[in-house]
């Protein structure tokens, strides 16, 4: 019979009792509401006329996506980086590890907890996001796609947070490392694209003659661009970056399968990172087991 991961269950119980959790959801929704109402007012009510601008609703939706993406980038590392390091600080990790529980179960429980929190935040914000439906232009499918994207990105970012949590003993160090990793990944991936673009321009190379699939792979690792591109499509994506750079990226063959490749790639990388985390967490490593069991 399928059982709920005990670590996950315990964490959720503890988290849901804390005042910080309830307060966090409230503040988050309040900020989202204020910003969306402000944009709503700017787009529809200031220059009011007989026509409904459906493109404006897409813009509001895009802005909300950016807000939610920012939330993922800020909150997921915060939750995941503290997950294992806080057990260490409270001296409860040894109690759990001594029970013979698989370190993969611990890592998975911690990730699930962070994801559940995030999903709860996203779901709680649905009424605010639904303001868009009053105008039209955005379908329920868009919202589902957005939630799916944000979950995949949360797993990707969360796995980095879990890894930091396994490496560092203190919550504060793990949290800083987690944020730094995300900033580095975000800046580094964009940086590589920019350097490649400058290189192509400097030497006057023809984009059509080059195989730029690798550059597409690099940009897919960028958590910010990936969510925005996948959910809001090229119109918003192009608007936020230099058109020529976008043309360069779009010239890659694999761009036709952006969503599929991007999701698969992030999930595979997340699994690898989680396996490394579980390995680090285990007090008796596999190589030691093999070496000693042979004796």
């Amino acid at each position: 019979m399928l059982r709920i991961n005990s670590i996950f269950l315990k964490q959720m119980r503890l988290r849901s009792r804390s005042f910080k959790f309830v307060f966090g959801i409230m503040i988050y929704n309040l900020i989202l509401l204020i910003i969306s109402m402000f944009i709503f007012e700017m787009k529809f009510n200031i220059n009011i006329n007989d026509n409904i601008d459906y493109a404006a609703s897409q813009d509001i939706y895009n802005i909300m996506i950016v807000l939610e993406t920012l939330m993922v980038l800020i909150m997921v590392p915060f939750f995941t980086a503290a997950s294992i390091a806080s057990e260490r600080e409270k001296q409860t990790l040894d109690l759990i590890l001594s029970t013979g529980i698989n370190s993969y179960t611990i890592v998975l429980g911690k990730l699930l907890e962070s994801l559940s929190l995030l999903i709860l935040y996203v779901l709680s914000s649905l009424p605010v996001i639904s303001i868009i439906f009053t105008i039209g232009g955005i379908s329920i499918l868009n919202i589902i796609q957005f939630i799916f994207e944000i979950i995949v990105s949360s797993i990707f970012i969360g796995s980095m947070g879990i890894l930091s949590s396994c490496i560092f003993k203190k919550v504060i160090s793990a949290t800083i490392c987690s944020y730094v990793t995300i900033v580095v990944v975000s800046i580094f991936t964009v940086g590589i694209v920019l350097i490649t673009y400058m290189y192509i321009r400097f030497f006057g190379l023809n984009i059509q003659d080059l195989n730029l699939n690798w550059i597409a792979f690099v940009i897919m690792l960028n958590p910010v661009i990936d969510i925005i591109h996948a959910v809001s499509g090229d119109s918003f994506f192009i608007g936020s970056l230099n058109t020529q750079i976008i043309n360069m990226i779009d010239s890659a063959d694999i761009m036709k399968y952006w969503e599929l490749i991007s999701i698969s790639m992030r999930i595979i990388i997340s699994i690898i990172i989680l396996c490394i985390s579980a390995h680090l967490l285990s007090p008796v490593k596999n190589k030691d087991r093999l070496r000693r069991s042979r004796k």
């Binding site: 315990k10 119980r13 503890l14 009792r17 804390s18 057990e87 409270k90 001296q91 409860t92 990790l93 040894d94 109690l95 001594s98």
Partner: peptide, 10 residues
């Protein structure tokens, strides 16, 4: 162990 690790709110 020789210490008691405590979870808050449990």
């Amino acid at each position: 162990p020789d210490f008691f690790g405590v979870y808050d709110n449990i």
